[in-house]
């Protein structure tokens, strides 16, 4: 299948600190690809180079065949690349409804927006119950749902998920991943950054492991799950 996203020998740095050196990865259309690694390995930086929040110093990023590494961030969103950021990056003082509306910021098709809002409510009925509540007062799990819902409101072609399991109870993690797998079954391509390697390797078809800003290992998720060194380092034995 064709690759929707190709990251080709990308380098990025924060000031003098090299954050990524020649990272290459591919996300085929319709797949879930996992990006694993310990804290500070460069996982979020990789997503942020694609979202165009971090400048690329060398290399190329292609989305559906087009080079996007010099695009501004809003153009990337218009093209259909939506990042669900790590942590609780909601608009705290806005209502849940306003947060979802902000997700559709770059769209003008009222009918499509309404349809996607219905879809978000179908995935996350909790959000519909709390529509008028301020986003900052939601629980951690609800904020994570809101972040995914907000990204879906943009009508994405590629979802960049940054640590969706972070700080959530095992039960919530299960729920969120059930939704992620469902989104994928319904046709959405996903690049998934996770520290929880077990769950990420469980739902992805292919995975990359970053160490110190470089791709240390890559392969079909099933192989990595059985790999001894991966088991020792990332799966706890």
């Amino acid at each position: 299948m064709a690759d929707l996203l190709e990251i080709d020998a990308v380098c990025a740095s924060y000031g003098r600190i090299q954050a990524l050196s020649e990272v290459s990865l591919k996300v085929p259309q319709g797949a879930i690809v996992a990006l694993l690694g310990s804290n500070g390995a460069g996982k979020s930086t990789t997503l942020n180079t694609v979202s165009r929040l971090v400048p690329v110093t060398a290399g190329q990023i292609r989305f559906a065949g087009e080079a996007i590494q010099s695009w501004p961030s809003h153009k990337v969103v218009s093209a259909g690349i939506l990042q669900v950021p790590e942590g609780r990056e909601v608009f705290r003082d806005m209502s849940v409804r306003e947060n979802l509306d902000m997700g559709a910021y770059r769209r003008n098709d009222a009918a499509g927006i309404r349809r996607d809002l219905e879809r978000v409510f179908e995935y996350f009925p909790k959000l519909q119950e709390r529509l008028q509540q301020k986003a900052g007062t939601l629980s951690g799990g609800e904020q994570q749902m809101l972040l995914i819902g907000r990204a879906l409101m943009a009508g994405p072609r590629l979802l960049l998920l940054d640590e969706p399991s972070l700080g959530l109870s095992p039960l919530l993690v299960q729920q969120i991943f059930a939704i992620i797998e469902r989104l994928n079954r319904e046709g959405l391509t996903i690049l998934l950054v996770e520290q929880n390697a077990a769950i990420a390797l469980g739902c992805s078809s292919y995975a990359y492991i970053l160490e110190n800003g470089e791709v240390a290992l890559e392969g079909p998720s099933e192989h990595l799950r059985r790999d001894d060194s991966v088991r020792r380092t990332y799966l706890g034995g």
Binding site: L53, S73, V77, L82, F91, R92, E98, D101, M102, R106
Partner: peptide, 24 residues
Amino acid sequence: TKTGRAMRAVGMNPKAAQLVGVDL
């Protein structure tokens, strides 16, 4: 208005605003 809401969004969380496509 959409523009006004985007301005408030930038005030609350500029990174999140960029991630939904606001031209900062």
